[in-house]
């Protein structure tokens, strides 16, 4: 997997103070995509174990509290990303059961494959659906167009 950006402290992608990873690779190719440069899976830099360790370390930083990890892109559920993203998400949840994971995907919940559900199993908040230019609305938090949904495990939105 490749990634584009890693922000060790971020407050604009999900609630609370977060570590945010923008991965490469996405098959939706939405018109007006906010991160068009991330669509190609081989764009950006290789995601390494070293970075993964860094993310885990940052999440546990005793000085600056992180409420959790945010995964965006590109699409973290892009088939080629599932393995790496799944491992990261699992390790985060195992190490920090109290920290949450937010994820942005262009797929809709109803059409997720079993392999994607295996990853979503670690996710607390899933913002789903492609970006649709005609439904653009930036007044709502955490999403770009009205069709997208903020699905919360707490509210039962992510149970099968």
């Amino acid at each position: 997997m490749n990634y584009h950006q890693y922000y060790p402290i971020d407050v604009v992608n999900g609630e609370g103070t977060r570590c945010t990873l923008f991965v490469s690779g996405c098959e939706h190719k939405c018109v007006g995509c906010h991160n068009a440069s991330t669509i190609k899976p081989d764009s950006g830099h290789p995601y390494t174990l070293e970075l993964e360790e860094q993310i885990l370390k940052d999440l546990g930083d005793p000085r600056i509290i992180r409420n959790g990890l945010s995964l965006s892109g590109g699409d973290p559920l892009y088939p080629g990303n599932l393995e790496a993203v799944g491992r990261l998400a699992r390790r985060v949840k195992e190490t920090y059961p109290d920290k949450n994971i937010w994820m942005w995907t262009g797929y809709v919940r109803e059409e997720l494959t079993p392999a994607q559900w295996d990853v979503v199993a670690y996710v607390d908040v899933l913002v789903d659906g492609p970006y649709i230019q005609a439904e653009r609305d930036i007044t709502q938090p955490w999403k770009g167009s009205r069709n997208q949904r903020i699905l919360r495990r707490e509210a039962g939105d992510l149970s099968l």
Binding site: V11, G14, E15, G16, R18, I64, I65, N67
Partner: peptide
Amino acid sequence: EFPNMQHNTQALENVWDY
């Protein structure tokens, strides 16, 4: 100096607490 925090008061609270 913060970005718009209207939907993320939790992050603002983290800083206040700090």
